[in-house]
Design a protein around this nucleic acid. Structure first.
Lengths: 159, 159
DNA sequence: ACGATAGTTGCATTTCTTTTACAATTACTA
DNA sequence: TAGTAATTGTAAAAGAAATGCAACTATCGT
């Protein structure tokens, strides 16, 4: 179960749905009920998610829309900077919210498979370094540390 | 085309094939010609690679082994710490050498799709921090920065 | 050196994720 | 409110990765 330590304060930003609407408008696309349902559901999940989980949550709420619509909506949300692909695991992609969240690292335990988030001021420093020294304009970041968590080390799953 | 700035000096370590042999022995597995061919080919590639590229390189050299063997060998190489999954793109996984390489970040241009590598002492510091403060034992790392490279910015692909 | 045995290979098939063609539907603009 | 171009669901396709199986073989003990 992913744990989320590095949540940014969720105050002082536009609601995600407004960002999305504005993006849709700017691109000359359409704000459909299906897209609205998908976007609202995604931002009710306060954790990493994947297509199947999202689809099941919607079905359980009686919202019957197709997976195709989800697969079509995700790239829009990525493009407008609301979410990002965070890691590919168990044969499929996992996503996380980006907008309003500080850059952070994911630390994954290879034994119990839990994922924790950590912030570190040095992440921003590295971004700044790349920006200033190499002239990149950065828009996103994925940082994953792999290893064994204290609990699993204690249980001697790993010597 | 991925560019590789952050290559570590390749001296002063055991040949990868020896590491692999030792791992195979320790696990009671078998050192087959197919495995040897795959491993040697992987360490002749000095860049990121994927299954298809590896398969084609082998075919072009007249080595006719199956993709299944590649798919079965990669987890072994990951498990013994020689390579890692580095990013999932174009619908499939990409790999890179790990053994003998310093931890580094990948900076990906979303326009021209090039991938550059950068080292930064802060990456190690962050690792140490996670290790000391949170008690993890870390074995690997993926760090990807996404944005637009100076060239593409100059060409005004992005305002 | 040889034979037994358990691991490995290639092939074909399967599973699973993600994409897409198409016809019906619908959001948006004038 | 009508016109039009985007969107939807369905079903199928595309593609990556995993796997069952029979034939093969590396390895080990004798």
């Amino acid at each position: 179960m992913p744990k989320t330590n590095a949540k940014t304060k969720e105050t002082e930003h536009l609601p995600e749905i407004e960002i999305f609407k504005e993006y849709i408008r700017r691109k000359g696309l359409r704000f459909t009920p299906e897209r609205e349902i998908i976007v609202r559901e995604i931002f009710e999940i306060h954790d990493h998610f994947d297509v199947d989980e999202l689809y099941l949550r919607l079905r359980n709420k009686g919202k019957k829309l197709s997976k195709a619509s989800i697969y079509r909506t995700l790239p829009l949300l990525i493009d407008c900077g609301l979410i990002q692909e965070v890691y590919h695991e168990d044969g499929h992609m996992h996503y996380e919210h980006v907008y309003g969240h500080e850059p952070h690292a994911h630390v994954r335990c290879l034994e119990c498979r839990k994922v924790e988030e950590f912030t570190d001021h040095r992440i921003k420093e590295i971004e700044e370094h790349i920006t200033k020294e190499f002239g990149y304009r950065l828009t996103g970041l994925r940082f994953e540390l792999l290893g064994y968590c204290p609990d699993c080390l204690k249980k001697q799953y790993r010597p």
